[in-house]
Computed example of a mutant assay.
Amino acid sequence: MRYSSEITIDLPRDTVVALFDKPENYSKWMKGLLSMENLEGEAGQEGARRRLKFEMGKRKMEMVETITERNLPERYATSYETAGVYNEVLNEFIVQGPEKTLYRTEHYFRFDSWGMKVMAFLMPGAFKKQSMQYMRDFKAYAELEQKLREGEKVDSDTEE
């Protein structure tokens, strides 16, 4: 299964990439992320591998992430492996103006188990919806983080 998602973030690309490139902040926008553990290589660099643990509802999930390309600020690619599922994600950051960045992802999934193949066939929208939710959450985090850094008053009732 292949699909792409995109969202415009109202910040310069350098700011977006700097925030994206801070794994210690992933839990601030990646709902359900419990922990990250470096397994090999230099953390955050091409070839590095780390274990990610998630809790989604009552389900716990563990996956291994491998950084397959690190060409920031333009591109950052990873692969993820978990029981019966292999996923590649290409993140692209495209300048749309001095204060706008298009954040685009391309996803490729391969399913090794019959159950996951059936789920992907019957519910491809669930995968797309989850990817888009992470993008919306990252946009909200990045834009709020920048406002806080600039010392703007933030009304918690109006922010997502």
Rank of each mutant, 00 (worst) to 15 (best):
A83Q: 14
L19V: 03
E145R: 14
V118G: 05
T105L: 03
L148E: 11
F54N: 08
L19A: 01
Q146R: 15
G57F: 04
G57Q: 07
L34S: 12
W114Q: 13
Y103T: 00
M36S: 12
M132G: 02
I7G: 00
Y103S: 00
K60D: 10
S113L: 10
E81N: 09
M119N: 09
T82G: 10
E65T: 04
D157P: 00
V64W: 01
M123G: 04
M123T: 14
K22E: 15
S35L: 06
G151E: 06
E46Q: 15
I9W: 00
V118F: 11
K147E: 09
G151I: 01
R149M: 11
V118P: 06
M132T: 06
L72S: 02
S35E: 11
N38Y: 05
M1Y: 11
E40P: 02
S35I: 05
E74L: 11
V95S: 11
G125S: 13
D14V: 04
M61E: 11
E24Q: 12
E99I: 02
T158A: 14
G47H: 10
V154W: 03
D157S: 14
G97Y: 04
I94P: 05
A77I: 04
R149Q: 12
A83R: 15
K100I: 03
A140R: 02
V85A: 07
F93T: 02
P98L: 10
E99D: 10
D10C: 09
N87C: 15
N25I: 09
G47T: 08
D155W: 06
F54I: 12
L72P: 00
K31F: 10
M30E: 12
F138G: 00
S4F: 06
A77C: 15
I94H: 04
D112R: 12
F109R: 04
E81I: 11
L72K: 08
A120E: 08
K58G: 15
G32I: 04
E65Q: 13
E69P: 08
